[in-house]
Design a protein around this nucleic acid. Structure first.
Lengths: 258, 258
DNA sequence: GCCGCAGTTTGACTTACTTCAAGCAATCGC
DNA sequence: GCGATTGCTTGAAGTAAGTCAAACTGCGGC
């Protein structure tokens, strides 16, 4: 079922309808959020394979459910997921979209149970380090504890930034920043900042940004009519306007993911 | 200028215009977020006083500035602060209001510098544990590392919940939940859930909830005309409606702060 | 091939919140 | 005590985004 990324595609990062994550879409272990936990000493040690296991998550499947106990730390290896906070009234808030290298479910450190759930938007592969294993490692290797704190701190800072975005009222600005955020994150992973996939539905973008899907759709149409973006099947290409400027300038100054 | 809390006042938790935090308003060390770090062994050990120091922060003063390096972990001992994310355009987002027992500035674990700043809304007292000290302790006492992760996880979960609130559109619901959140947090600290201070301005409530101060004011007036709340000088009393119901029912089931 | 479905786009209308503005209340400094 | 300042309230008008609804698109199944 492995579909190779077609060399003839004008936008390498966008491959329509792939059933299984392409090998080329995987993030390098060195840039993975869990790298320090997963490879705590040197890669030469040889016992590392025992620490983490791989797990496939089919499109629509949950990596973990809301309310489930935290049994492991996860890192997305390939694919695309959403971190979801279901509301009692049936609606839901999408906390974040998860790209290769991201570590979902860290909010479970609060109580030991997952307050949010992670659902695959396309077939994905996830690395798993059992939590007890991570804790043992963290006790033995002090720098790991610091790495975990940094990871948690980053999630916290990001969440606060997103909350700040939601208080800025202009819907177009939210969508613009959403695209820039995805662009930056793909860029950090070595992919194109100006052409990338959007495997989520309009509805889900709305649930992430506090907008209705109609508003998201209208803004996309508006951006397209201005020539700022081009919408493709399941993807977007940044072509101009303030979006492109930001993508380019940020490319120059982009350092490694801190 | 110290005005004693009048015995005749119907709302004991509200004292107008106090210049210095009252002793009675301090949170017990045992319920403080930093307690495990500050008192890592038993209180009988005697060397604990060296770990944490006290600091007074006058109303309007900053506990730490945005961009400043993270030199310490903090816990509010008495008073009231706001955690602020300044925007480049001069506006700002109030991430959170800080009550006694809260630990501000944990988002600095992301980069080692504070992305947000903490500003006192009234004269406050803060406990401080130097960061290097905390890291040394965490290395020596594994459970401390876990405690820190729990603390960070809680902040993360809370921030995500707040972001979720901001995507729910009804302004009245945001204000209602804001009051309930404060009520719950005062309750966890042993104070009245139905009568508490609101030392922040309408403007600041708006900056926390993504509303204008006019909207906040109108909703307060509306709640008051319905008999749900009574606004007092610098405080609020929950008197009826769905707010009161929630406060009472939650009082019954309220456990210790996890 | 055609049909049906799920997701998207677009349009018309409505409304909740913002904006602008004026008036009020409490506090502070002289 | 009195005026200035700051924060709060209230009103009127405008607007951005929501709601409801219909049409369109691509895809999968038969």
């Amino acid at each position: 079922m492995d579909i190779p990324v077609a060399a003839t595609a004008p936008i390498p990062a966008i491959a329509p309808r792939e059933k299984a994550p392409a090998r080329g879409r995987q993030v390098a272990c060195a840039s993975c959020a869990l790298h320090p936990l997963c490879h705590p000493l040197s890669a030469a040690e040889g016992w590392l394979a025992a620490v983490q296991t791989r797990r496939r998550v089919a499109r629509g499947e949950r990596l973990f459910r809301a309310g489930a106990p935290q049994t492991a730390l996860y890192a997305i290896r390939a694919g695309f997921l959403k971190a979801c906070a279901p509301n009692p009234d049936g609606s839901r808030f999408i906390v974040r979209f998860l790209l290769p290298g991201d570590a979902p479910g860290l909010d479970a450190f609060a109580t030991g149970a997952h307050p949010t759930e992670a659902i695959a938007l396309e077939d994905s592969v996830v690395c798993e380090v059992p939590r007890y294993r991570a804790e043992i490692l963290a006790e033995g290797i002090p720098s790991l504890g610091a790495q975990l704190r940094q990871l948690l701190g980053r999630e916290l800072a990001r969440s606060q930034e997103h909350a700040a975005l939601l208080t800025r009222h202009a819907a177009a600005e939210r969508v613009e920043r959403f695209l820039l955020d995805l662009s930056r994150r793909w860029g950090e992973r070595g992919y194109s900042r100006t052409a990338f996939r959007l495997p989520m539905r309009r509805q889900e973008i709305g649930e992430h940004l506090g907008l209705t899907m109609e508003t998201v759709s209208r803004i996309f149409s508006d951006f397209q009519s201005r020539g700022w973006i081009r919408l493709t099947r399941g993807g977007v290409e940044i072509r101009g306007g303030p979006l492109l400027a930001e993508c380019r300038s940020a490319d120059a100054g982009a350092g490694p993911a801190v």
